[in-house]
Each structure stands twice: as structure tokens, then as C-alpha cells.
Design a protein around this nucleic acid. Structure first.
Lengths: 187, 187
DNA sequence: GTCTATAGAAGGATAGAC
DNA sequence: GTCTATCCTTCTATAGAC
């Protein structure tokens, strides 16, 4: 089902190339060529390449959480949902052939002063962590546990982030599999 | 103490710009200008920009561990050393004004097929984790602990990686401070 | 809204003199 | 080993016709 509207063609091509090659290595010329549109057509919808970047990031946010919801929609138990969060990230890494986290990729190639992008990245990360925190709370862990809910949440989040990074550099989801065991032990 | 040898000028400038702006946003022209050398002079030492990248990465490896050794040289207790590892990363983030981990930055802007760079990244990450593992082993934790040494090592590593990433996007080392508490509780 | 054509700057890399 | 000068490509962005 190929997109027929110009703006859809742009967004689909930009998403694919920005993730695969990185934002700075992807030129406007390549985008219009692979999207089969003309250059002024692109600039009619986006006033600059940076504008397209922001649209890409907003789409990233929506699709990431939509994908998470779809992946976990049939799971009710909060613990199972936590494990499914890890499985969601494993599935994404396999599907992308270990291309890494699109957020980390795009955030890392920005100069550190690019706050418009970094703040969207911070929002994504904290929103995702809030999802984890919500599930951890529902676990109703005994209060005398070694780790409180916040610390447990941090560990789950950290194991996933670090696991995806290692998946990217080692081309394997071994670390993410181990993360599930750690979660099981500490829950 | 400014460098007087041409190759030192190149490496110093490349290190600064690659980290600050990213590899793909840093042009050869800017490097030679800020290093105050001519273009053929650069190409006399490095046969291509990619060649300079590999030299930069090798230097990154050496300086990162040299810095870690210098930072922890007066500490003997293995637990204190683990905490110092986190403090080392905090100090680097403060010094760079939350510029992020130079490894993650350079790894993330490579296309995922650039195995020459990714493998060096994997080596760095696993070597660093091995340092953590070695200290964890020296802790001589009781065998009936909830987490075994390997799992505890993974958590420490993950907390640091995720903590540096969050430092980059939030411009704060709050997450890294929390990581020290988690390590204390689980040790 | 979409096109052809082009501007103007910056990219990586090299020839040839010294 | 270092320089000046230059090559060709690619970059982002726009003017003007339809």
C-alpha cells in the first residue's frame, strides 16, 4: 500500500532514510528522488530540512507508542506487560536488523545546543519511563523490598536503554534477553 | 600548551569538533581552518576523512581509560572504585557541559553497516563492562544474594549508560547520582 | 501545488610548485 | 612535508512557468 499523497511520500521516505543513514547524511536530493517528487514540492510542505526533521520526530513519537500499545494490547497482567515492553524493543531491533534506537540515533547526531530536538527526546524518554513506573506501581510489591518502586523503575528503564545500545553495536539481543531475567528477579 | 606538530593540531581539532558538532557535520575545511594548516597537509597524514575518524576513535579509547585510571588511582577499595566510576562519568558530563558520551555520539551517527567503527565501539563497551565485573568480583558478595555477580555487573553498566544518555538530553546528572544509590543498595 | 532550471555555498580530494 | 590553486560533486534553497 504505497502512499499516493505527496506529503505521505515525503514522510515515509524521510523516516526510512533518516533512520537508516542518519539525518546529516541524508540529503534533500536523495529524499525527493526516492520519494519521486520534485524539490519545490518538498519545500512547499516544509520550509526547511530542519522543519522536516521536527515532523519526523513527532511522527517517531506517535508511532513508537502506537506500536507499543498494539504490541501489548492483549496483555493485562502488569508484570507480563513489563516483560512485553522488553519484547517490543527486541522485536524492533530484529525487524530493523539491529539499527539501534531511532531516538538515540537522532539525538546523538545533534549538536548539544539543539534544544528543540533534545527536549522532544527528553519528553519521549520520560514518558516511556512513566509507563514503566505506572506498571511497577500496579505490581504492588511489598514495602520492605530492597528497592523501592522508583529505583526498580530506573533499573528496568536503564536495562532496556543499555540493552538496545548493545544490540546495535553487537548485532544481537542477548543483553535485552538478560534484562528480562533481571526484572523477574527484582520484581 | 598548544600543539606545535601538525598531526597533533589535526587530532586536537578533530577531537574537539567531532565531539561538539558530530562527525558528519564537521567538514575537512573547518578542521584545517581551525587547526591552521593546509588541506594537502592533512591528506599527507590521513588518506581520507574516514581514516581520520578511525584515528579519532582509537585516541578516544586510550584517553577514556587513561582518564578513568587517573581518576581512580588513589582508591583501593573495590566498592569505592565502582562509585568512582560513576563519578568519573559525572565529571566528564559536567566538563563537557552535558555533551553526552562521545562513543555513543559517534556510534549513533554511523550507518548500521559501518562495522569497522561499531566493532571498536563494542570493544570499548565490553572492556569497560569487564572493568566493572572485575571490581564486582572483588566485592566478595555472599553467594545467596538475590543477584549474582554477572547480573549486578549488568545493572551497574546499564545504570551508567542510561544515566549518561539522560544527562545529555536533560542537561543534568540527576540520573547518574541515583545510580550510585542503586549500586549501594544492591552491593 | 507541482514542475524545470539554477543559484550559491560547502563538501571531499588532488596537481604541481617549493 | 607543506603550501596555493583548482576539480568535481553534492548540498540547501529559490525563481518563475504551468
Amino acid at each position: 500500500m504505497k502512499p499516493v499523497v505527496v506529503i505521505d511520500k515525503i514522510m515515509e521516505t524521510a523516516e526510512r532514510l533518516f533512520y537508516k543513514q542518519g539525518y546529516n547524511l541524508t540529503g534533500i536530493n536523495q529524499i525527493i528522488e526516492e520519494a519521486n517528487i520534485s524539490k519545490p514540492s518538498l519545500y512547499n510542505h516544509f520550509k526547511s530540512k530542519n522543519d522536516l526533521l521536527l515532523a519526523y520526530i513527532d511522527q517517531l513519537y506517535k508511532r513508537w507508542f502506537d506500536g507499543l500499545d498494539a504490541f501489548t494490547k492483549d496483555i493485562t497482567d502488569p508484570f507480563d506487560q513489563l516483560i512485553a515492553f522488553v519484547d517490543y524493543r527486541i522485536s524492533r531491533q530484529i525487524k530493523s536488523e539491529y539499527g539501534g534506537c531511532p531516538w538515540n540515533k537522532i539525538l546523538s547526531e545533534m549538536p548539544k545546543e539543539e534544544m528543540e530536538v533534545l527536549e522532544r527526546g527528553a519528553k519521549f524518554k520520560t514518558d516511556f519511563k512513566a509507563r514503566i513506573a505506572s506498571l511497577v506501581k500496579q505490581l504492588d510489591r511489598p514495602k520492605d523490598k530492597l528497592l523501592n518502586d522508583e529505583e526498580f523503575t530506573d533499573i528496568i528503564f536503564a536495562e532496556m536503554e543499555s540493552g538496545v545500545l548493545m544490540a546495535y553495536v553487537t548485532k544481537s539481543h542477548e543483553a535485552l534477553e538478560k534484562a528480562k531475567n533481571v526484572i523477574r528477579k527484582l520484581a
